[in-house]
Every structure is written in structure tokens, then in C-alpha cells.
Design a protein around this nucleic acid. Structure first.
Lengths: 114, 114
DNA sequence: TTGCGTTATATTTTATTTTATACAACGAAA
DNA sequence: TTTCGTTGTATAAAATAAAATATAACGCAA
């Protein structure tokens, strides 16, 4: 390990109480649900199990003031899921925070003697 | 879930390449090693196994340019571990970054309609 | 030279998390 | 009313991670 390059990195998320309810993975999931109209397709795209995706969606719906995703079963295509207006707002707000955080990361670095 | 309070939280760490080599847990471990002079005691205090603590120390020593911890076995007390000058420097630098990050977290928040 | 407590390491066991599998419920459309 | 693919849910299997256990190496001090 000669001449290592040290990089600052990190993650941010939203909590209520001490429970994490939104991070960048969940945001990506929401975006893929919106794009595909399907929890299953979003899960496949992100290579996670349907159960995990469903659990995440359910958790978000339970912990935000209003549901972020509304799903229907049966009907054309077997069922579908849509991201609510509130969900879109949440996505947008998180993107703003994420961008500021990226700026923080690039603006700060470790200063270590080699 | 009526009237939820959304809080921004997060973590930062140092990487080389794509490997995490220092975060707040490792920093605490270093500090406890320095305070106790023992990897084992530090591990006990943090309720982690000796093996896990040793692996973390070993990983840090391998990935920073110079060792952060020097250990000895045998002798008075059975052996000991000390944090190097470079290790102290690393701890200090991380604290600076961490403090700035805390300021970032308190300065930013989500804006969501209830 | 024996005992001591720690470091260092390997191996086994346990616990936790994740994934896979199965299937009922559903509603539109053929 | 049958088919279809998804949602929703439970259970089993598999994969990971963590912890427990064991033991050698070590060097000082009694």
C-alpha cells in the first residue's frame, strides 16, 4: 500500500425518531417504481427481491405523513404501482440535500502527511 | 404515524480506492486503544469481539501509509498496544471533518408539507 | 523456569440477514 | 369464466456476518 489516495465519502438519510426512512437506495427505488409503474420491475432492475422492495415501500408509506406509493393488484398487466405527488416532492427534496452533501464532500478532504 | 418529525442524519468515512478504511467506529476504537493501552480492553469496552477489533486495527495499519497502532505481545501485563503519532494525527483530522459534517447536518433539513 | 495476560490466528458455532419459493387475492380483458 | 402478471403474505432455504472457542507465541517478573 504505497502512495494511498484518501477520499472522503459518506451517506445521508432521513429519520423519524431513530428510524431510517429514506436514503439514496429508497429514492432510487421510488424513481424506478415511477418509471416502470411496477414494484416488481423496480426490484428486478435493482437486483433486490420483491419482498425487500415491498417492505421498503411499505415502511416508507407507514412513516411518512402520507403514502409515497399507491399500488393496485389485478387488472390490466396484473397490477401496478404509482408514486404519489407527495412521493415526487420527497424525491425532489432528497435530491436537493444530496447535491448539497456532494458539494460538502468535494469541498472537504483529509490532510495527512505521507 | 401522525405529525412525524423528519431529521437529516448521516455518516462520513475515509476511503482508499473503494475500501472504507476509517469511520467513526474505528476512530473510537483507536481512542480506546490509546486510553487503555490494549486492543482487548478497547474491544471489551465497545462490546465487540477481540477478533473484530484486531481485524479493524490490522486493516487500518495495512491501508494507511504508516501504522496507526503498534502492538507487542508478552512482557509486563501480557502485552500492549499504542497509537502512533500518525494515528493521533489521523484521529484529529477525522474529528475536524466530523465536526464540519455535524454543522452541515444541523444547517440542512427537509422541507415537506404535512 | 513458571505463571500471567495479551497478541495473533484458526476453527467452529451461533445468530442474523437475505434470498428463494410458494401461493392466495385481485381485476381487467379476452 | 379463464387467463394473465402483479400485489401481498408466509414460510423455507441459503448466504453472510458475528460471536464463541481454542491455542500458540510472546516476554517480563516472581
Amino acid at each position: 500500500m504505497s502512495n494511498p489516495i484518501f477520499k472522503l465519502n459518506g451517506r445521508i438519510w432521513i429519520e423519524t425518531g431513530d428510524e431510517k426512512i429514506l436514503g439514496h437506495g429508497r429514492v432510487e427505488l421510488l424513481e424506478r417504481i415511477q418509471a416502470s409503474g411496477s414494484i416488481r420491475q423496480a426490484a428486478l432492475q435493482m437486483k433486490m427481491s420483491y419482498k425487500q422492495a415491498w417492505d421498503l415501500v411499505n415502511h416508507m408509506n407507514e412513516h411518512f405523513g402520507q403514502p409515497l406509493v399507491i399500488s393496485h393488484r389485478g387488472g390490466k398487466g396484473g397490477g401496478n404501482a404509482v408514486v404519489t405527488e407527495h412521493g415526487l416532492k420527497v424525491i425532489g427534496e432528497f435530491h436537493l440535500l444530496h447535491q448539497k452533501f456532494q458539494e460538502f464532500l468535494t469541498a472537504n478532504s483529509i490532510n495527512l502527511p505521507l
